[in-house]
Structures are given as C-alpha cells and as structure tokens.
Computed example of a mutant assay.
Amino acid sequence: MSSLARPKNGRMIAGVCAAIANRFGISVTLVRVLTVASVLIPGPQVIIYLILWVVFPSE
C-alpha cells in the first residue's frame, strides 16, 4: 500500500479520491462514484473533502 499523497497524474479536482483509491488498492472510479453519491446525503462531506485536500500532501 502506498501513502496518502495526492498524485500528480489522474487528478480530476484535487486528487483526494485518487489518493484514497491508491492507498487502499481500489478503483479510482469507485471512490469517485461513492464520493459523489455521499454528497447527495446531508452531512459534512464537502467540508471533509476540502480538509483532506489541504491535509494530504501532493506527490
């Protein structure tokens, strides 16, 4: 497993989903779909995404 670093290649917005997918060895598309689906549910998902964008280092 790799570290939680936002990759330079394969980013769509900030690379948070790609970092999570790479870390856990799952499909980037699956993580992106789950992220978009979770935004439809009320809660702090967007704020968490923005925090992870700042916290995860770039490659």
Rank of each mutant, 00 (worst) to 15 (best):
G25R: 14
R32F: 10
M1G: 08
V28E: 11
M1F: 09
N9W: 07
A19F: 04
V55G: 01
V33L: 11
G15S: 07
F24V: 08
S27D: 15
I26A: 06
E59N: 07
I26P: 00
I13R: 15
M12H: 08
P42N: 02
G10H: 12
M12V: 12
L4M: 10
I48P: 02
A5M: 09
N9A: 14
S2L: 09
R32H: 08
T35P: 02
P44D: 15
I13N: 11
I41K: 12
E59K: 14
L40S: 04
I41C: 04
T35L: 13
G43Q: 12
I41Y: 11
S2N: 10
W53Q: 00
C17F: 00
R11W: 01
F56Q: 04
V28Y: 07
A37D: 08
L34N: 10
L52G: 00
Y49L: 15
Q45V: 14
M12L: 06
I48M: 01
I51W: 03
S3I: 10
G25M: 15
Q45P: 03
L34Y: 06
G43F: 14
V46A: 08
R6W: 05
P57K: 06
I26R: 10
S38K: 09
N9R: 12
G43Y: 13
N9I: 14
S58A: 12
G25D: 14
R6F: 01
P44W: 15
G10C: 07
L50N: 09
L50K: 09
K8T: 13
A19E: 04
I48E: 00
Q45K: 11
A21I: 02
P42Y: 01
F56S: 03
A37L: 14
V16R: 00
P57N: 04
L30A: 13
R23A: 09
P57G: 04
